[in-house]
Design a protein around this nucleic acid. Structure first.
Lengths: 229, 229
DNA sequence: TCAAAAGTGTTTGGGTTACACCCATGG
DNA sequence: CCATGGGTGTAACCCAAACACTTTTGA
């Protein structure tokens, strides 16, 4: 083993490493982000993205760490997670001289988050992303992280790459369109939208499955597997 | 301060945090990546991306850490750096039970890297990216990281977002096109390429500055400032 | 006079938007 | 019957690719 690097590892302190979760959903026709109110320092009482400490004794890798944090804080497991970025600097977090956060994004149905908060969070709420990003009261640099998550998500929906796990097992094409409109923040043309869906083959219809309602029943679809780039 | 989190910070060990650099250039008409041969463990004698340990006593933030590593290892300062991702898991690096790497990409002119390697590297070489990505002998998961860097870089050049600092102060439009062709790996149509350049206003001509050569002199250009999205 | 540099022009096609329609269906 | 679901058709537009061509210029 390289003695000098080994020495560095043992001699030099490592940063305080945390995971932060930007969890998005569509609620009331708007793109919203999950915020929790912190009970402890730093920024006690302020709203922030849910997060937790990386535990090298518990987490096999970064993805697993994000999942564990979601479980401990919110009692849920996330369908598909996407790493957004890592941010780190000195004085970022008063708990440590140097703090590094790895930020993940996931989209999920609002119902999956129970109202009962977990450890170190006394309240949870969905907040429309435009309000959250304008909120100067957000802890740390979380407003920028939300901005990042929103941008990525808009690009995905715009390219018809829908995050698996956000939509229920079966859904109608109108569901897809309404969600896309909420995420993108603008109306879409039904005809064009469906043509694009068809060309990209993102959804396959479930034979015979219909959603009945007040009017004509709607064909149910599933997401086609792996339209990877 | 939150006692439980403070306890976690002091009680739980933190991962071994490193910075890795994916440095790209265009050489011999091909996109190439800088690899160094390791002198120490792990993977002594194998080629890998240059990197170094994050030093919380020296680095103000992640960007500064990447710059310091470039300076110590290669004796250069990088013009523009882009964070690609963070990777981390247990058993990733034999020097520590849990290793986390933050990966940065930069593009620079090949001449900026002197042949004389720095600490813990006994040789440096530019390697065409397609060969590097196919090389199973690369240390750790560096082949995947290179793949990631190449993808991002191709997208940038394809969208005419040229990394500042890669091109010299002044350049010709043919320079731009040749570099783009090398990065993208395919020929481009001069007429279309220049129309796009013009529409996007990415380059402004330097009045009166010409590159003289064997034939008709070529107009020199500079990158237009900040075509940010 | 040669060949690179620069510029002009047209055609073609893909992809998307916008808009106007059509029919089907269950309550 | 009516509002929703599902679909057709089409003109317009933007963007980029492809191709052909002319002019300029220094050695």
């Amino acid at each position: 083993m390289d003695d000098q690097e080994a020495a560095q590892f043992t001699q030099h302190p490592m940063p305080f490493v945390r995971m932060e979760l930007a969890l998005l959903t569509v609620l009331d026709g708007r793109l919203q982000v999950l915020l929790g109110r912190r009970t402890g320092a730093p920024d006690a009482g302020r709203w922030a993205l849910p997060g937790g400490v990386l535990r090298i004794d518990l987490d096999a890798d970064l993805d697993a760490a994000a999942q564990r944090v979601a479980n401990e804080r919110l009692g849920i497991s996330l369908p598909v997670i996407t790493q957004l970025c890592a941010v780190g600097s000195q004085h970022r977090d008063p708990r440590a001289p140097w703090a590094l956060s790895v930020v993940y994004r996931a989209m999920l149905a609002a119902e999956q988050v129970s109202a009962s908060p977990g450890k170190r969070i006394d309240a949870l709420r969905w907040t429309p992303v435009d309000e959250a990003m304008a909120d100067v009261g957000l802890a740390l640099d979380h407003a920028h992280l939300i901005q990042n998550a929103v941008t990525v998500t808009r690009q995905e929906f715009g390219a018809l790459r829908f995050p698996v796990g956000f939509f229920p097992e079966q859904f109608t094409l109108t569901d897809l369109q309404l969600a896309s409109e909420a995420v993108l923040g603008r109306k879409l043309d039904k005809s064009s939208f469906r043509r694009r869906l068809n060309d990209a083959a993102v959804a396959v219809e479930v034979a015979g499955a219909m959603r009945t309602g007040a009017f004509r029943p709607a064909q149910l679809y599933q997401l086609a597997p792996n339209k990877n780039d």
